[in-house]
């Protein structure tokens, strides 16, 4: 890890000024930053520690929704009683991620900004070509070992998977990212790789995420996060789904359904085609299965990740069935 200077911000203004310096990066939980600094992917000149700012770590939930400070820790939000009641998928996406230690460290803002686990991205000493690290240098993953790479939202320049769980639940329930006074829907916050995979979010230099807000909804209250992975725990998703479901008064016709996918796309992936196919329908196994397969429209397999095209719709189907059975609407 290259040496850097350390600056402890004592106010948000302080932090923002420091973050504008060339070579400056913000340090919150540190679980991504220090990991990537050790890999040689990130070489900060100045690390601006914002963990001593006390005004950004609150969690407030009311009838309208939740506002979660950017510095709230994953474990605090996962275990928060009102978050669990109003947004079970959000709580589950957090408690199924990483390990207990990492969840005590990593913050909500930092969680959104975690970088891909693409092995080629993470090994600059071995793989020089990576458009995300070094724009224009090429992609070592295309034609390589691609078991964990994306099938949706990819480009000729990059096929790296967005690895997070939280953002998948957030995008399903129309959450917004607060950057000072700016509010950006999570779906717009993340960018597709296109020809510029080095640009992953709309954040500009000096921007600081201050909070995440999630509007309350009946679908969010009846929601779940299903994560399928190569080992039972402490692993990134092979495929995951955040699903929320609201029935009409008859208890079986879908009024509102939210579906988002993780582990298969270059950004947190809202599966609107699946949602549109199910609104107004009574759920039965065949309808759900047929609708789930619509999520794979436009999917491109690299070979090693071909299994995801079959796996992801099954994860959606299973999540909807689990939820439908729980609320009693599945025929």
């Amino acid at each position: 890890m290259r040496d850097f200077s350390y600056l402890r911000a004592t106010s948000a203004d302080d932090a923002q000024k420091a973050a504008l310096q060339a070579g400056a990066v913000l340090l919150a939980g540190g679980t991504t930053l220090l990991d990537l600094a050790k890999c040689g992917v990130t070489e900060p000149e100045t690390v601006v520690d914002i963990t001593h700012l006390s005004s950004l770590d609150g969690i407030a939930v009311d009838e309208g929704g939740a506002t979660i400070g950017a510095l709230a820790r994953m474990s605090e939000v996962a275990d928060h009683r009102e978050i669990k009641a109003a947004f079970p998928a959000v709580s589950e996406s957090l408690s199924l991620a990483a390990s207990a230690q990492l969840r005590n460290m990593a913050t909500m803002g930092g969680n959104l900004l975690q970088r891909t686990r693409c092995s080629y991205f993470r090994e600059p000493g071995v793989f020089a070509a990576c458009n995300k690290r070094n724009p224009g240098s090429g992609c070592s993953a295309i034609g390589g070992v691609t078991r964990n790479h994306a099938i949706l939202g990819t480009s000729d320049a990059c096929i790296a998977t967005y690895p997070g769980d939280l953002a998948v639940a957030l995008v399903a329930f129309d959450a917004t990212v607060e950057i000072g006074s700016r509010r950006v829907p999570v779906d717009d916050f993340f960018l597709l790789p296109g020809n510029t995979p080095d640009r992953e979010t709309v954040l500009e230099k000096g921007d600081i995420i201050t909070a995440i807000s999630i509007p309350a909804s009946a679908a969010a209250r009846n929601s779940t996060y299903l994560k399928v992975r190569d080992r039972q725990s402490y692993e990134f998703a092979a495929a995951s789904a955040a699903v929320g479901l609201e029935f009409e008064a008859d208890g079986r016709t879908v009024r509102d359904i939210r579906v988002a996918l993780g582990g298969v796309a270059t950004k947190p992936w809202r599966a609107r085609a699946v949602e549109q196919a199910l609104v107004g329908k009574a759920l039965d196994a065949e309808t759900v299965e047929k609708a789930s397969s619509l999520a794979m429209e436009g999917a491109v397999s690299q070979g090693g990740n071909h299994y995801k095209i079959e796996l992801a719709p099954r994860v959606i189907t299973r999540a909807i069935e689990q939820l439908g059975l729980k609320v009693g609407g599945l025929a």
């Binding site: 340090l27 679980t31 474990s75 230690q101 005590n104």
Partner: peptide, 9 residues
């Protein structure tokens, strides 16, 4: 709280 000291400055 338990944390990882290798990823903590």
């Amino acid at each position: 709280k338990r944390v990882l000291s290798c990823l903590t400055l």
